[in-house]
Amino acid sequence: MPVEITGAPKSSWADEVGEELDLHYEAVTDENGVKTVIEHIINDDGKKVKVTRKIKKTLITERVNKAAAERKKWAKFGEEQGKKPGPDLSTTSVGEQVFLKLSSTGRGVETVEDIEITKKKLLGKKILCRICKGDHFTTKCPYKDTLPPLDELHIQESKEPSTTEPAPVEAPGPGKYVPPSLRGDRKSTGESYKERRDDATIRVTNLSEDTTESDIHELFRHFGSISRVYLARDHQTNMCKGFAFVSFQIRDDAGKALASLNGYGYDNLILRVEWAKSSSSSTS
């Protein structure tokens, strides 16, 4: 009986007993270009095993220098003499993923303490940017032109008397949840490091598929220095799953970001920003 190589096996289970099983496999390619190969093989113990493999092929063309191409053909020498081409696992391995987050935050070495000290100094002077709420004059704001809709949002919330907007929304009314960072009675100083870290994380949901880590960085770094961005990605397609976590170094910055960007239209979607649920604290 000829063996069916491709397509779903239509034969009944009774027919599957036999050596032909070795060759049974099916291959399906989905819309993302991921090829799924399912094989039924008999292993060494004589048991039937189903093997599922997912393969994605990408063709990359690379141009190399002629001299460099010539050198690739060289025979190995020294301690490598006689070894077959290709990286040897005893000397070459692939390390864990490392990240290089490029950003222009902070001149030189600046610790969290330094930032807090400067912020305290500025508290009395009331220098507040109307655009990004940073500790500089509005005219000097580097993000003046980057996010126009954000400006309007900020103006609404800003307590500057010079704004033409009608009565700005003061502290939210009673009954509405106010994050601890926005409650006036609480100081961010004196908290333990761990607490601070947990508290300064916000969750962003309703992100579009194309969002990348750098987009999130771009969007949130106006509010303060970001210590970590986690963007949930689909394992197969490597596309955004729609949510991300952003950790700030200072909780107040996270609060600012939350207040400004919750409900902000980004990439045709309305963002939802909330405090990340933490195992140790009950803020959510």
Binding site: R71, W74, K76, F77, G78, E79, E80, Q81, P85, G86, P87, D88, T91, T92
Partner: peptide, 9 residues
């Protein structure tokens, strides 16, 4: 690719 071509001993 990190392949070792050789050593100079």
């Amino acid at each position: 690719n990190g392949e070792r071509l050789g050593t100079y001993n």
